[in-house]
């Protein structure tokens, strides 16, 4: 029981929104509709993060995913002509859809077996099982609002335990920037840069 009170209703609402719009992401005919549905999924998942008191990750999810990655997706959909998919004649799925369904069913069986055999609440002794959540909220001395220390604690963990991956991530992002710039050049730009290299 990691949620309590009215959080339960929010959990079911957000889970339903995430699942349904995830399904529509896969099934929508137009790529723009897929992107909008995926945005709804991401926002619902961000709400789930908030329910689990991971406020910092919720902010990162909204800012990076919904504000950054999805806008990139929409721009590319705009650049790439996907008008063909809106016609009812165009095939939506590739020929291997049957194999995809079989693999998804196999995954479902595997996951249900894994969840069944490793239910974390059944591996706990009854005295270990939490009844009331340990609160991480502290009263703000300046005001009445309780403030969460989640962002501070995640920041401490990020720069202590995760300092090396943090630096590696910066290199990864640099590679991504350079790679996407190089990949998205037009042939004319490529020719121009080649000529510049030949004539110093």
């Amino acid at each position: 029981m990691i949620l309590q009170g009215a959080e339960v209703y929010f959990f079911w609402a957000l889970a339903l929104i995430a699942l349904m719009s995830g399904l529509f992401t896969v099934l929508a005919r137009s790529a723009v509709h897929s992107a909008i549905c995926l945005m709804m999924t991401l926002i619902a998942v961000a709400g789930l993060f908030l329910l689990m008191q991971a406020e910092f990750v919720m902010g990162v999810q909204i800012l990076v995913y919904v504000g950054g990655v999805m806008v990139l997706f929409l721009f590319v959909i705009m650049l790439v002509n996907v008008r063909e998919e809106r016609l009812d004649k165009a095939r939506l799925f590739s020929r291997q859809w049957l194999g995809a369904v079989v693999l998804a069913g196999a995954l479902a069986v595997t996951f249900s077996y894994a969840i069944r055999t490793s239910d974390p609440y059944r591996t706990l002794q009854p005295e270990q099982r939490p009844n009331t959540p340990p609160t991480t909220l502290e009263r703000n001395p300046q005001g009445a609002t309780p403030i969460s220390k989640n962002a501070q604690e995640v920041g401490m963990a990020l720069y202590q335990q995760g300092a090396l991956p943090f630096e590696i991530a910066s290199v990864l992002l640099l590679v991504a920037i350079i790679g996407s710039v190089l990949l998205a050049r037009t042939p004319r730009q490529e020719r121009l840069s080649d000529q510049e290299q030949e004539t110093p």
């Binding site: 929508a28 790529a31 897929s34 959909i77 859809w97 194999g99 995809a100 693999l103 998804a104 996951f111």
Partner: peptide, 16 residues
Amino acid sequence: FIIGVGGVLARRNIIV
């Protein structure tokens, strides 16, 4: 996850 795997394997549009 299963929905995502189904989409990866079954869809034709690379953006989806």
